[in-house]
Design a protein around this nucleic acid. Structure first.
Lengths: 125, 125
DNA sequence: ATACTTGCAAATGATTTGCCAGTGT
DNA sequence: ACACTGGCAAATCATTTGCAAGTAT
């Protein structure tokens, strides 16, 4: 069963990966990309995995571990930082109070420039 | 020249529209979808138009009007609210101070639930 | 003539679906 | 037998690209 291999891979990765990376990374147990997607979907239904959209490019899948994490995706270098879900509570409340809008930053996290890229802004060296 | 028709359409719409809507809406001057994309790209280079990604689905294009606007996309009903760009300054600064991350909410705006859908949450009636 | 535009078809990238054969219980 | 997988090809959606014909300057 490939589901096991996928969970193991995600566990080892310890970071959000794309379906493609999964499909390529499972060297011991080659698995078709379509099957990877199907398994990820099943795992999501079981609440074991979740995914989010880090700007352009493919969706990122992660294991739903104990401590709830949220992500911040860098549009420039592709880095994905993770923060404690609770660290975003202030923002969420602010947006709610100000616009009556409920943001989670979960399925569609914030996309912007990480510290490193922010410093380099405009520097196309 | 179709560029004029596109700008007019966007002006009349006064709201973010997809390339597809543009292509379908230009009844007086039918224009191929590929040409719509090409023109939008040119207009973006000229700073006349910009686009952003409202969650799943196609990109949304808007005229870069005088007052800088940002958007909030509802994941449930697809509604797109707009707010004054400056109204997000607090959030941006907060994220910068807290995570050293620079968010614009411009190319990738916040996606969540609008007030209406937020109230209905869980109500699949 | 030379540059800019267009339509149309084909290509991309991410993801999904159909279908049929193989495995598990 | 019957439900659950997997591979593989084809389909879908948003967007891009190639190319040859058409229009503008």
């Amino acid at each position: 069963m490939a589901r096991r291999a996928i969970v193991d891979y995600l566990f080892d990765a310890g970071a959000p990966v794309s379906a493609q990376q999964l499909a390529s990374g499972l060297d011991r147990t080659p698995l078709d990309l379509a099957s990877v997607y199907r398994n990820l979907e099943t795992l999501e239904e079981h609440g074991v995995v979740r995914h989010f959209h880090a700007g352009h490019g493919p969706g990122r899948y992660v294991l739903v571990g104990g401590g709830e994490r949220e992500y911040l995706a860098c549009d420039r270098c592709g880095a994905i930082a993770d923060v404690d879900r609770s660290e975003l509570d202030g923002l969420r409340e602010d947006v709610q109070a100000r616009f009556g809008f409920e943001v989670g930053f979960t399925h569609f996290p914030m996309v912007g420039l990480c510290a490193r890229c922010s410093a380099r802004e405009g520097t196309d060296s």
